[in-house]
Computed example of a mutant assay.
Amino acid sequence: MKLDDIKLFYYLRNFTRNAMPSFYFKNYFEKIKAYEVKCDPSEIQNRLNYYFKVTQSFNLPKEAVAVKNFKKTKSTTYFFDLKEFLHYFKPNVSFVYHFGDETHINSYPTLFKARPIAGENANSILFKLNKRRHFQWVNDSNKFSDKKNQLVWRGKAWHKLRTDFAKTYWNHPLCDIGQVNKLENNEPWVKGFLTIEEQLNYKFIFCPEGNDVATNLKWAMSSNSLCIMPKPNFETWFMEGTLKAGVHYVEVENDCADLEEKIKYYINNTTEAEQIIKNAHTHVKMFQDKKKEDLLCLKVLEKYAELSGQNNALRF
């Protein structure tokens, strides 16, 4: 368990950082900028362009909030994730952000956790938000070939994809499926919680979207299990829109009608399954360098300030 998994430590660390003097942030800012010189500039630019699709200058709307006025309104984790990088900007520099799982597109550039993959989504600028919940990785010591020949999933089921899936597959012999939120009636597909460590004993992990992206997708793709899911509709900082079926994950129909067929195929084709898992690990590796992640977060905000006409926005 990481220290950040302990809620008390997480809050203590973040509140302490927010109280640090200016030289603390100046020192880290210089380290990040020195690190940038060592990075592949094309990789950094490609990721920045992916997150920030707006290319033309724009005027700040009335919804913009200045750094000096940025305060916690709802989710504390979202607040911490943005505040961490606002320390590097002058007090009057302003940004527009939206916290929460909503994926609507504003008429002006806005920092979001998630956005639709399809359609005109440029005004939703992806930022690494709610990362304590979403960006978890695992060290999986179990080989794919040694795991149970079953698909596992535990989660809350409020949306049709999840509720239909739980009702259909809760007692399938190739599945260990259950929703964890209670219902009025004692339905058999409502089951007990399974830890991530317990789920790593299964060859296949189901990664269904909820309000936006599948929360378990990041840690599942870092495991030695195979991710199975319908084609994603939403994307976050993890760049779900770049994931390819049969390359990074196994795709099933939206109603999961071909689920049994796909499970049986990869049980019998271990080499193909292991190659997909290897490709998933390669994708995950892009997000495991903290300095690179911090650099990109900083560059997203720098670009926002630049295109919104806020010159000399950085403090240092």
Rank of each mutant, 00 (worst) to 15 (best):
P188A: 00
Q310N: 00
K156A: 13
V54K: 08
A280Q: 05
I196D: 06
N268P: 05
A64T: 06
W153H: 03
A64H: 00
Y78T: 09
P61L: 03
A273T: 12
P230G: 08
K292I: 02
G246R: 10
A220V: 04
N149Q: 13
F9G: 06
V67N: 03
K148T: 12
E240W: 03
Q136N: 08
N279K: 12
N269R: 14
K2F: 11
H172N: 13
E260T: 15
I205S: 06
S222R: 00
K38M: 11
M239C: 14
T168P: 07
I276G: 04
F287L: 08
F52K: 02
N224A: 01
W189V: 01
I125T: 01
E272S: 15
A122G: 05
V213H: 02
E261N: 15
A114I: 03
A257F: 15
K203L: 07
V96Y: 02
P41T: 00
N59K: 13
L296W: 00
H248T: 07
H159W: 10
P230I: 08
E120P: 04
D289M: 08
E184A: 14
L200Y: 06
W189Y: 13
I276W: 02
T103I: 08
L296P: 03
K128E: 11
V252G: 09
S145Y: 10
I263H: 01
K218N: 13
N69R: 15
L296C: 08
K90A: 05
N139A: 13
E261A: 15
G309V: 05
A66L: 08
K90M: 07
K90N: 07
Q150P: 06
H159F: 13
K285T: 05
N185L: 13
S42T: 07
F112Y: 11
K147E: 09
E36L: 01
T271C: 15
R13W: 10
A118P: 02
V213Y: 04
L298P: 08
G192S: 09
I276P: 02
P208L: 03
Y265A: 11
P188M: 09
E302V: 00
F234H: 07
F70G: 01
E274D: 11
F29C: 10
N181A: 14
H134I: 13
D294L: 04
Y265C: 11
T16F: 15
N46W: 08
F193P: 00
Q45F: 04
Q199S: 05
L194A: 12
L129R: 03
N185D: 11
L3T: 10
C227T: 11
Y266V: 02
R315M: 12
R133H: 14
E272V: 11
